[in-house]
Every structure is written in structure tokens, then in C-alpha cells.
Amino acid sequence: MKERTYEKYFRQNRLPHIWCPGCGNGIAMKAIVLAVEKQKLPRDKTIIVSGIGCSSRASGYMDFDTLHTAHGRAIPFATGIKLANPELNVIVITGDGDCTAIGGNHFIHGARRNIDLTVVLFNNTIYGMTGGQASPMTPLHKKATTAPYGSVDRPFDACKLAQAAGASYVARSTAFHVQHLTSMIAEGIACKGFSFIEALVQCPTAYGRKNKMPDPSEMMKWMRDNAVMKAAWDKLPEDKRTDKFPIGVFHEQQTVEYTKAYREVIELAQGGRK
């Protein structure tokens, strides 16, 4: 059996976690520490910042300096940490409601600034912690406690949003594709700019049960059967795309990173002395 070297990244005394049986958040959290290990990030110089919601409880289980902020505000806090001390590696864990609803403005402006954060969105398409209310990423016509007749609100594609707003790296994977998800996050960490990785995770309790998919393994099979690698997706005819979704790297274009840009401001202010 392969040694579970990643276990050192967890606060063993804080486990077991509070997530429901069958939840995908643990898989995404593990993918993050695997990516941290892969990129050999120094643990004392790596900060995990999260918002509020199921996803955001992950920070408490991870043995780094960790910050569990307020609902939607992880990115501004993370921006402050990175600007105050650019040598720190800052990873943000957020959820679909946290990131794209209450934190939507911070999300697009973090991407616009292109500050070197790695933002991992655990997308369970629902507000899980509070019992299953609709989020801006709940698929059309799916049910939630606040959308008892099915949601008529068009969902965000958070990846397109991040790209349009100026992120340097944008990717998507799922809790089923663990290795793939890990490498997407690892690449995001390596990118010196705003990196955004959407990790589709199953929520059997708050989402699945309301939408005829209460079995977590069924939800993961749905991911397996409907996720299409980016290269294949690009060749897929429009009529074959129904119900399917692309995963992989959607965008990678390193532009000026914000803390670097601010170094230039400092040099200008100091008359080019540095």
C-alpha cells in the first residue's frame, strides 16, 4: 500500500470532519494537499483561506496557517495576506454560493487584479450547510428548498466568468477525476497569477436527494459519464453536448501579477531607488 504522505498536512486532532457521508468535499480537500505536496510548497509559508459554507470548513482540518473568514469574503482577506507578504502562497477554498453569489464582486475583481492566489471552488451546486437552498450555480430546473418547483435562475459558468474577468489560469475537474483534479490544482499553484479551479463535488444530502440522485456513487458515476476532457469537448458537435460538460484547462495566459505590479509602484514612489 502506498504511503499516505499527504496525511501530514491534516490536523489529525480536528478530524473526523463534519461533512455528510458521501460528500465530495473531502476528495477536493485531499486533492489540494496532494497538489501542495507535488509543488513542494513550504508549509510555514502556505496559507489556506476559506469563506463560509460546507467547503469552507476545510481550512480547519488543514495543518497550515488557516483563515476561516466571513461569507463571501475569502478573496479580499487572501488579497490582503498576499499583498502584505508576497512570499506567502495563498490558497482560497470557497463554494459556489460563497464565491459567485455573496462573494461575486470580490471574485471578479480578484481575477481582474490578477493577484497570485489559487482559488479552488468546491461546486456542489447548492447551499449545503443550511439545508439545500439554490445557489447561482444550481443547474436550471433542478430543485432546492428555495426553488421547490425547480430553479428558473440561469446558472453561472464560473470558469467563463473567471476567464472574462482576467484570471491567468482557469480549469475545471470533478471529485471523480481525483488525479486530474490534483494536477489542475497543482498547475494553478504553479501559475503566478490569479488561478481558478472549479472542482465539481457531489452533495448527496442537500442536492442529490431533492434531485433523484441520493446515492453518492451514482452522482460520481454521473460525473464520470458526463465530464468530457477539453480536447474532446472542442471536437464534440453541439447536439452531442447536451447534459455534458467540459473539464480540463480552459485558459492559461500569464499576465502581470498584482504584487509584482505594485513593486513597480513602490519603485516609482521611491524615485527608482530600489
Partner: peptide
């Protein structure tokens, strides 16, 4: 709100 969040992050750092 972002203005408040960013200073709290910087203070923690």
C-alpha cells in the same frame, strides 16, 4: 466590504 476584508488579511499577515 472588500476594503475591510483586505485590511484584515494584511493585519493577520
Amino acid at each position: 466590504i472588500g476594503g475591510m476584508g483586505v485590511v484584515l488579511g494584511a493585519s493577520l499577515a
